[in-house]
């Protein structure tokens, strides 16, 4: 339960150091905070636009149809097909992935093979599309270069690695 101590610990460390060094901590806190609000406001259009598009794709049932196409690929790697939607959605939508992971763990049990696989997949990568949208949106980067390709390829490696590692460790 280190995690309970972590954040208060960091806050304490920062404030103690600032006080010892006689830095006007409260004034600087307020000064730095303002930037946070500014970033949050500039973020909304990027986030909202991307989320609506993904929601339309999902709600129409098109995502489910695409997933069916990928089932044979998944079977090739010896992974159960129940895990496929999660592998596919993990880079696209964080909330959808978390609810899928929860559902898989609830249905198959946290200590089943699928439960392990879902846990590791959920824990080992992050939502690429969300991160690109938020990080580049916040500072107004219009030309993304290779960022999306790099992120998605790394996700693919991460998902395959999760499958292989879980097969080796838990099966």
């Amino acid at each position: 339960m280190i995690s309970i101590w972590l954040i208060p610990g960091i806050i304490c460390l920062v404030l103690v150091t600032a006080t010892i060094k006689k830095i006007p901590s409260y004034e600087i806190f307020v000064e730095g905070s303002k930037e946070g609000l500014q970033i949050a406001v500039s973020l909304l259009p990027f986030l909202l636009g991307m989320m609506v598009s993904i929601a339309v794709f999902q709600a129409s049932g098109a995502m489910g149809a695409v997933l069916v196409l990928f089932e044979p690929v998944m079977n090739m790697f010896g992974a159960p097909e129940e895990i496929l939607p999660l592998a596919f959605i993990r880079p696209i939508s964080g909330t959808a992935a978390l609810s899928m992971t929860t559902e898989l763990i609830r249905t198959f049990g946290p200590d089943s093979f699928i439960g392990y696989l879902a846990s590791v997949m959920q824990g080992s990568t992050d939502t690429t599309l969300y991160i690109i949208t938020v990080y580049f949106g916040a500072v107004g980067i219009k030309r993304m270069g290779d960022a999306l390709k790099v992120g998605l390829l790394a996700d693919l490696v991460g998902i395959l690695a999760s499958i292989i590692i879980v097969i080796i460790l838990f099966q």
Binding site: I10, I11, V14, L15, T17, A18, K21, I23, S25, I28, F29, V30, E31, G32, S33, K34, E35, G36, L37, I39, A40, V41, L43
Partner: peptide, 18 residues
């Protein structure tokens, strides 16, 4: 996210100055 951003960027500004 705004709440989190405001809080952490404020705190980190102190960490930066210190």
């Amino acid at each position: 996210l705004a709440g989190v951003l405001v809080f952490w960027l404020g705190l980190m500004k102190i960490a930066e100055e210190a």
